[in-house]
Design a protein around this nucleic acid. Sequence first.
DNA 1: CTTCGTTGCTACGGAATGTGTAGCAATGGT
DNA 2: ACCATTGCTACACATTCCGTAGCAACGAAG
Lengths: 120, 120
Amino acid sequence: MCYVFRSMASKAPKPRQPVRGSRTGRPIMALLDLLGRRWTLRVLWELRDAPATFRELRERCDDVSPTVLNQRLGELREVGIVELSGEGYGLTARGTTLLEALLPLDAWARAWARSFAPAD
Amino acid sequence: MCYVFRSMASKAPKPRQPVRGSRTGRPIMALLDLLGRRWTLRVLWELRDAPATFRELRERCDDVSPTVLNQRLGELREVGIVELSGEGYGLTARGTTLLEALLPLDAWARAWARSFAPAD
DNA sequence: CTTCGTTGCTACGGAATGTGTAGCAATGGT
DNA sequence: ACCATTGCTACACATTCCGTAGCAACGAAG
């Protein structure tokens, strides 16, 4: 790796703070804002099994542009969902629990697909 | 209401089709693309309890611009998650199951918030 | 029929966000 | 000294989103 840690611009939506499209500060609103940004869900998904280096993660996400990837990783790190360690980027303990809350999506998506093309 | 149904431009990511950032056609990828678009998660969330008219839904979503709202509703309708009835816009049966898969997010968000401001 | 209020929805210009390529500085190995 | 890899940035272009204004279709009331 390279570079030491560098504090970021603090752009990630956080609970108890007003976010895009909601000034109430309700935690769920911050979360929806965060997860609703492009590539965020995908990044979390690609980290579900194992950590990955920046470049490896980029490949897993179909070569997303490093600009956005870095932006998303910054946001996710800022709120304690993702961390950078010697193994590369990976989910924190909290991040793992979030992903568990998202896991049912895969099963749902399969059932959803069946309704588009019955044969499976 | 007004206007009869009008077939749309088919821009929604569907399972078994290549989507933005993934040509595999895996259902979960289509879903992540769909849900990762701005306001999609929020719209689903605001419909969790009861249907709403276009204008009412817009207010619930902090006055999101009608352009995007209509775009999102079109996508969600196209894939059978949302429908427009006499009651206004509401979740379909399938949409309801998707939302159930997302409900744990609220609980997670609350716990998340606690780690930012211990007192609650 | 006319007026009024509400419906879903669109046009359009400007602002924000995302994309793609190239490449830099730091680190570790040989 | 080299070389490969790391995380990450610069910059110009494209897409998406936003905010305001307003249209056409319907229902109810006069």
